[in-house]
Amino acid sequence: MRYMLMIYADEAAMANVPTEATYQMSAAYDAYTEALKKSGTWLAGDRLRPSQATTLVRMTDGKTSVLDGPYADTKEQLAGFYMIEAEDADAAIAWAARCPAASTGTVEVRPIWEMADYLPRK
């Protein structure tokens, strides 16, 4: 089953991290990504730009509404993601626990609802 590991981090705190700590964090993510790839679990993943670069799009009464970010005054913002293939939720949670973000922020584990699971059969 596929899972999204969504990484939430405090953007304000990250902006104040010393350069050396940033290099160490980058190395930890590189090692984690390599472990996912070697295990055959990794499907996709990337870092996201800060929430100021975000745009929300909504349709209301047939009209497009566009709102540039950031939006909510929250402690943590969505900072990146991994899409993995795992045997079950326990395996996905185990991978999330190994993610460097688990020790400094939050990693949300969410199963992907496969389209084949809910589309009508022909």
Rank of each mutant, 00 (worst) to 15 (best):
M1D: 10
Y3G: 01
M6S: 05
A13R: 14
M14W: 12
N16D: 12
N16C: 08
T19D: 12
A21Q: 15
Y23P: 02
Q24L: 14
M25Q: 09
S26T: 12
Y32D: 01
A35W: 03
L36V: 07
L36Y: 03
K38E: 11
G40Q: 04
W42M: 12
L43S: 01
L43R: 13
A44M: 07
D46L: 02
L48I: 04
R49I: 02
S51V: 03
S51G: 07
T55E: 09
L56Y: 04
V57Q: 01
R58H: 07
G62Q: 06
S65C: 08
V66S: 01
D68E: 14
G69D: 07
P70A: 08
P70K: 05
A72I: 08
A72Q: 10
T74R: 08
T74D: 05
K75H: 09
E76W: 04
A79S: 15
M83C: 14
M83Y: 01
I84K: 08
A91Q: 13
I93H: 13
W95K: 04
S103H: 11
S103N: 11
T104S: 14
V109C: 07
R110Q: 08
I112M: 13
W113G: 06
E114L: 12
M115K: 12
M115G: 08
A116C: 10
A116V: 05
D117N: 15
Y118S: 13
R121P: 01
